[in-house]
Nucleic acid binder design. Sequence first.
DNA 1: TCTCTTGGTTACGAATTGGTACCTACTGGT
DNA 2: ACCAGTAGGTACCAATTCGTAACCAAGAGA
Lengths: 126, 126
Amino acid sequence: MADAEPRKESASCPMDFILRMLMGPWTTYILYNLKSHGPQRFGELKRRVAGISAKMLTERLRTLEGAGLLRRDYEATIPPKVTYSLTKRGHELDGVLNSLAEVGLRWETEDAAARSQRAAELKAAE
Amino acid sequence: MADAEPRKESASCPMDFILRMLMGPWTTYILYNLKSHGPQRFGELKRRVAGISAKMLTERLRTLEGAGLLRRDYEATIPPKVTYSLTKRGHELDGVLNSLAEVGLRWETEDAAARSQRAAELKAAE
DNA sequence: TCTCTTGGTTACGAATTGGTACCTACTGGT
DNA sequence: ACCAGTAGGTACCAATTCGTAACCAAGAGA
């Protein structure tokens, strides 16, 4: 049973790295917000995502920063001002997110249509 | 602190449902394999993903089946034969996965280029 | 008869995850 | 003087997750 090769097939899947990033619980909300509302401060982002804890947000932002998807601008004013914005690389995901949203929207529409059709059939069957 | 609206903004993000699906640890490997190698049996899939436990694979397959992304054909022969294949809806993700792979590949190339350039600069600096 | 096969299910247990509470340092408002 | 807010860091605690191992059915081959 024991597989000789540890799992080198991950190399054959370049999207794996990206998905591992997008996979985080709140990641898409964050990217979506930064994409649609532009650069934002920590508290602004936290308020907008609504439900995320500061710890999670920090951790996600650090991960995304480390991946080069967003930039962190720290101004050591009093009170401190930290602004997050998408990098060029971060914006390259816009296309992916868009096609994802497109498919999601299509499914939503299809499901709604199927639901209303079933409802109509149910009504006709009475 | 308490947010008035529970978090209805999820509604504004139709890709969220999809990402919640793709987010699973092995999901992309499974979809990728089914996409590139066609319909496969359980054991075949398990061997190909190499590292996944039967439990995980089962759970992922059930989830994907429930989402209508793949179909499960069960033949009650002895030994049983279960074949999994992508549905039409499952194939609609091909485009997303492709653009994802495209971006991933581009980054890989860019990173490799940046690495070799840095190496060259280091060499020149000596 | 004993074992191997396929495609699972279930129980157990360890590890990771993520939330809550509390801490910083500094200032502005009351 | 005290509380709120800004941008977190840290400790602790509960819940979830995921792997491992054991088990199942029923036929085929040794």
